[in-house]
Every structure is written in C-alpha cells, then in structure tokens.
Design a protein around this nucleic acid. Sequence first.
RNA 1: GGCGCGGUGGUAGAGUGGUUAUGCAGCGGAUUGCAAAUCCGUGAACAGCGGUUCGAAUCCGCUCCGCGCCUCCA
Length: 456
Amino acid sequence: MTLHIYNTLTRKKEAFKPIDPQHVGMYVCGPTVYDFAHIGNARPVIVFDVMCRLLQTLYPKVTYVRNITDVDDKINAKAKETGEDIRTITERTAAMFHEDMAALNAKAPSIEPRATEHIAEMIEMIERLIEYGHAYAADGHVLFHVPSMPNYGELSRRKMEDMIAGARVEVASYKKDPADFVLWKPSEDDVPGWDSPWGRGRPGWHIECSAMSRKYLGDTFDIHGGGHDLVFPHHENEIAQSCCANKTDKFANYWMHNGHLMVEGEKMSKSLGNFFTVHELLEEVPGEALRFYMLSSQYRSPFDFTKDGVREAKATLDRFYTALRQHKDVVAADVAAPDAFMEALKDDLNTPLAISVMHECLSAFNKDPSAHNKGVLMACANLLGILEQDIEGWFTGAGDQGAGGVDGAAVQALIDERATAKLNKDFATADRIRDELDAMGVVLEDGAGGTSWKLK
RNA sequence: GGCGCGGUGGUAGAGUGGUUAUGCAGCGGAUUGCAAAUCCGUGAACAGCGGUUCGAAUCCGCUCCGCGCCUCCA
C-alpha cells in the first residue's frame, strides 16, 4: 500500500501523491515562544516527527519546516507582566522548547524559520494582496477582505453567514466585513514594530506561515500540519492569504490535524490547574516514555493524558529495554521494518497498530534472540523514535533521564556480596541483601550473564 | 444556533460486513534456591432502538451520552 493520509480538506483518507516524488515538503505550525511547552504542544511535535521519519524512508528527500512565532501579543503581555526584555523571553523559551523536544526524541526540523526574521517577506506578501484587491489598509491596519475570496471556508467547511451569526467578538469599526482579519496592525511605542508602507507596526497572526512556507516550500507544497484547533481560523486564513497572494488554487495539498489532549478526563486548562509542562513531566519520567505514550493512540483521536497512562507507557518500554539488555551482545542486523508495521504507519500513521506489531517482534526476539529479530525490532523503533536511550541508564537512572538517587557503586557492591553468598548456598544472606536493595528501590534480576538491577 | 468528532472486554486501544487485534491487569502452567525476566495456555467487548443483509459491533436512520471549533488556543 502507498502512504495514505486523512486530509482535512476533503475529510477523507487519500493516497499521498507528492508534487515531486524526489522531494517532499511539509510545514507544521510551531510554538509561540512565551512560556514552557505543555504536553499539548508536544503532541504535534511528536506526531509530525514520526511523519517525517516515515517520509524519509519512503522518499529520497524531505524538507520539514516548523516555524517559531516570536512576535505575538501574548509575548508582549508577558514582557509587560515580568518587566523582561522581549528578546530575552523569546530566546530563552525557544531554547527550552528545543531542549524539551529533544528529550522527546523529536529531531529538529530541516528549517526552523522565525517570524521576526521574515518581516520583509510578510510585508511583500501583504503588498501583493492589496495590489490584487484582496486586502485594504484602514486606520493603520491592513485587513484581508474575506468576501474577495469566493471559496473562503473550504477547509473548515463553514459559511460566512454562519460565522457572522456566531461571532462572539465585537467587530472593529475599520473592518469592511466582519469576517475580515488582520494582516498588519500598528504598534504603539512600547511594543515591537517594524517600518512598513502602513507605518510602524507588526504582522497579524496568520501571515507569517503564509510568507515562510512560500519562501521555503514554494507556492504549493505537499503537507501542512498542526493542531486541530488551528483549522479555523488560522489555517483557513493561511489558505486565503497564500492562494490570493500567489494566485494559486492550492496552498497545501494535504492538511493533517492532530487531536487535542485532555488531562485525567478533563479539558486541559490553566483554571483547572491541570496544565502539565513537558519540562516538569521530564523530572518524573523519561521523555521517551511521554513520546511512546502519545503514540499509543492514533494522532487524530482526542488523547486523555493521565499519570497512570504515563506509568504504563514507561512499563511497556521497560519490556523492550529488558529484552535489549538481556541480549545486548546481539548485533542488530541491518533489515527493514516488517510489512505489517509499515502498512500500519502508511495507513494515516496508525501508530497503535504499529506498536502492536512491535510487540509481536519483541515476542519473536525473546524467543529467538537473533541478529535478524533484533534488527527488525530496532527498525520499527527507529521509525517511531523510541529505544534510543542508553540501556543501563534507562534502568538505573544513570543518564540524565529522570530520577536516580541511587549509588550505582554501592548497589554493585551489594550484588557482589550476594553473589558470594549464593555461591556458598547462603540463601538467607542472599535474600537479606535482596530485601535491603528492594528497600532502596532496587530490583534484582538474576540472568545467565550475571545479576542486573533496575530502579522500581 | 452553525460545523465537526467520538461512544469497543476490568483498563488502554486497533480493526473488520461472516474468521485471535495488541498491551496492561486477572487466572492456570513452565522456568527459578527464592524472585525477577521470559515463555505457554486462558476468560472477557463492541451505548440503546429500528432498518438493509443469508449474516452487522462493522452500512443506514433515530435516540441517549461525551467532546472540539466558531477570529489570534497545538
């Protein structure tokens, strides 16, 4: 089977046909850098990282663009609140974002453009929109005139009349039509601004993605991704801006949207206090467990994030690492992932099904720890971006992944002592040492190659 | 009000018009000085009501329940 993608544009699963089979382009909406990334932000990063890995195995070249929004009113508000310099906030937050996403085994995108470095491209695009009659300047603002685009609303499938009826925000006086949205807005002196034909100002939310995707991927490209909530208005407006400015019918051919997260059965929100940042979760659990947990459901489904679920995901990864640890001397053969696994991923990224195939591979490897079976397992793992940690570190907390707090040398000394006791058939002493270690949170496993240990 | 999504065994979570998902938990067994890990076996489901069909949990309709978006939230 060829790769199939559920396309939000058509609401159907479609066979993926790249514009250029030699080079696939994908754009994903990235973070606005004003605060720590929360687990909800992590989902698209993980999902599209897997997508990118899959595309890379199917096509010779993939360009994956994920932007950083570093000009935004939420950033301005944060600066006002804390008294910090805006640049300080965005630089620090972007650095933290990179650190957190790396901990989730998410590879860096091919290109990570920043909005503030593409103001000229945005202004140029806005000028074209005005020139072509799709935008107008009014009261220091530049607005996209929605009625100028006949098929506006195609992605989100909503009619303009419905939107106006349901609008909950009062319409600014300078708008010709209530649905018109901002391309450029004036900046007061205490807010970042750039010189433009319409005075000192800053871009609206949507224009950066239109300008930057065009610069790096062209007028029309293959895949555009993001969170489900971005379908409207963000992506709808991107389409409007890009198609009208570039005079094209199509912006992105395939639109992929990941479902939202809930926490312990409730909508994640700051007021409920159920807002986990990736940063704080990483203090409790390895990033790889968070990643694996997210991949345990299909990306379009809503995902109920629970602490129990995280623990279970960690325990499942323990099984995989246990097998790798027991057969660490086996050199993995260089083989491809099995068909069933690939078919699952190629079916709109069915990661839960793919993981079930991995369990079968694990079982096969446990029964027959051959180089081939290990290779098969690792080929699957590489596509999902798991089993990338140091094995001993995973079990003993020796790496920087999660809590350790146990002195490895001391543990080894006790294990040696116990080995001597066992040799002398002094099982009372051996069991006492086991209990002692158990109290320290250390579990022993006697294997053919000696005794190994892990944290509970 | 408009648009859209979903309700699967104890639990998480796939899938299919007729045939075992898978993991965890449970139960039985093998193995082990005892454990752990592993292996083998095993019970258990498709929200409700109609309809289409030789046959539906899978298609259609209705009902109930839950959820998302509707101008700057991934």
